[in-house]
Nucleic acid binder design. Structure first.
Lengths: 220, 220, 220, 220
DNA sequence: CATGAATGAGGTTTCATTCAT
DNA sequence: GATGAATGAAACCTCATTCAT
């Protein structure tokens, strides 16, 4: 029971203040919920706090979402798919070396997702998928499969072109993704405690090691 | 609040059945708690269920632990430190190439931690550290710092010996660890949904890419 | 709090569509409320549902009624009194045997009240009077007293004329009324479950037994 | 999820105070609930009040009943069936005139049910069956069907023996029962408001009218 | 007049914690 | 030492009521 995730009311006619507010509410609420779910986990988040952070009363939440669980699902759904679709489009007609393409994907991922509030969604999925199998399935089908396809195409292309060594592509995909996801987790959970990570340096090292590792004698 | 981390009752004198049972209780309880904390998260786990899984009454939990939170801390404390100490000892007097040492560390980590129930502790820390800063601090000081030292020493040794390229060691450590931690998370949270990971293959690829990436012309 | 019990707008002057609508509103609302109060009880009825059934917004209810309770009272008040007044008038100048009069009252009650939506009001009083003593008092004074008077007069007349046996009139009244009220309750509450009642047959049997019971050797 | 409706612990061995209390709890709770359900209706009854009346905390209710609804069902189930079974047994081997039998049934009903707290259960069914179809079905099958059978047998026996007129038995049953049920309703709901009923007189009149009505020339 | 978004008190339900047995 | 019945604070959720539009 989610309404109009994106209030695209670019018509010329004047919309009432009230209507504009109502259109904006769902994403105000999911934004507040995202922050708290990421911070406290699903079970640890109180709807009181979500409402307070969004600046509304507890009851208002229930005008837009049937239950805590449906709010959770809306948070996930609203977050990722649009971003991924954009990424796919952007890379579809890339011309250039696979090395550059791979570098561009990883950097782009950081710019578009990893460093934004969308990263919280990723954290959420990782933490809560055990308790929400349906959400995990949804996310798997809509995001993971497509994200892996992107990398698979890139790696395969590089191997076919002789840029990369012949390797087990499927596990290469996983090993490529893993440091990205851990970066999110570190930023969201563990930065607090002592050891700070500098994302740019971390990513550069990951890319450097990866491309060196993929190429027979290091990347061009 | 009593916590007997390891029921080392290897004394020769005969202990009564009841006494042995009492000594074993704490770790029976933390074992049950670990499973459920990993599966449902801290807030999502009910002490009823912990007690039921351990085969005792709910009240008994409070004979051994002051509160849900102290049970959580005991789960963490009991789990990791002994394992890490063993690993440090094992590697202290290693003689051989840094390449082999690094390979051995990663494989050993999987054998001693990643594939065992200790992995659940890691998952827990990752999921819940936000809500338990003290636990995160404790874990950081006792585990993360020492684990990173191990890798730092290995990488530095390899660079000094000319086996590895000169690189930014600190971020290399993180990038090396990340796939290990993600492997745990995948096994504990996401395996359910569709994409199965084969740990051995995944680790081999990680090691292969890493060593290729670290060496100027690939590992020997 | 406005209550227009009967929208008697039979004036000759033309009223605007809007005005006619406004006059009709209160009874549209009480009609919707009656249905739901009967079906779910007072506490179990949501004003949302009342408004939806009447085809107006929830706020509109509050233009006509101060509160849920005042809506309830209006439902009761609007329902019964007019019908009873009509019945009294109709029977005032009856000439004929008491047997026929009694038969006519019971049949008439079914035709005018028992089989109509007014029956719901009776059901309501029965179910909710405990929670609304004032409403019960009001109903008692306006309806019960007068209804019993009607029967008392009829029975007394029959006894005085030698048509009926001399009996305890007050309890005869109650025993006469009881099957009528239970008929309403059965139709409104219990018909659902299995045992169907055929009101005409039921009434005929009631009248037959009653008149046989009242007369020394059965009715003429 | 009801436990041991009747704590038949007449064994000689001493039971702990605590155990005895636990056995008694369910019926203490249903007794309290019955009172309030009858008085306020299902939706109008707060579990706080039920708990308070039973002298326990709100949480304790949930040790014995899964939900408000299951408490309601327990109230119904616990109440009637035993009483009816007793009545059936009592009448099974009756020898005597049908007139006396019928009189005995009606008087007995008042003594065993109508004048006891079981009457509240009847009131409840009447008020709430609309909202709880399953409960209504259960009650219909277990109570109504059997109660009607009792009367059917009696009436048929009387007609066959020539004591009663040949009549439509099914509707006679309903008309016989109706004043009993209304008596309960009056005692439980409407006595408050003015018109008091005297049950004994009311019943005598009902029986008098009924037997007179059934017999060709009045009962013997 | 009419709307329906917003409110918040109050209901049902859960669960960490206590304590008499 | 062990139990599990009892507690009550706090969570989720509902809905009568209000008020800006």
């Amino acid at each position: 029971m989610v309404v109009a995730p994106l209030p695209v009311s670019s018509s010329a006619e004047p919309v009432s203040q009230r209507r504009r507010r109502k259109d904006a509410r769902p994403s105000e609420l999911t934004a507040a919920a995202l922050d708290l779910f990421v911070e406290k986990g699903f079970a640890g988040t109180r709807l009181d706090d979500v409402a307070a952070r969004a600046g509304v009363s507890k009851g208002t939440l229930y005008l837009y979402f049937d239950s805590k669980e449906s709010l959770f699902k809306a948070v996930i759904e609203e977050g990722i798919v649009p971003a991924l679709a954009a990424a796919e489009q952007q890379l579809a007609d890339y011309r250039g070396s696979s090395t550059d393409l791979l570098r561009m994907i990883l950097k782009g991922w950081w710019a578009q997702i990893g460093s934004t509030r969308l990263a919280g969604v990723v954290k959420l999925i990782i933490s809560e998928s055990h308790n929400f199998p349906e959400v995990a399935k949804y996310y798997h089908d809509r995001v993971i499969v497509r994200g892996r396809s992107l990398l698979r195409a890139t790696l395969t292309r590089g191997i076919d072109a002789g840029e990369f060594r012949a390797m087990d592509v499927e596990s290469c995909i996983d090993v490529t993704i893993a440091p990205l996801l851990m970066l999110i987790i570190w930023c969201h959970s563990l930065c607090i405690c002592g050891h700070d990570i500098e994302p740019e340096r971390y990513l550069d090292t990951h890319i450097d090691l990866l491309l060196h590792g993929l190429c027979e004698r290091g990347p061009a």
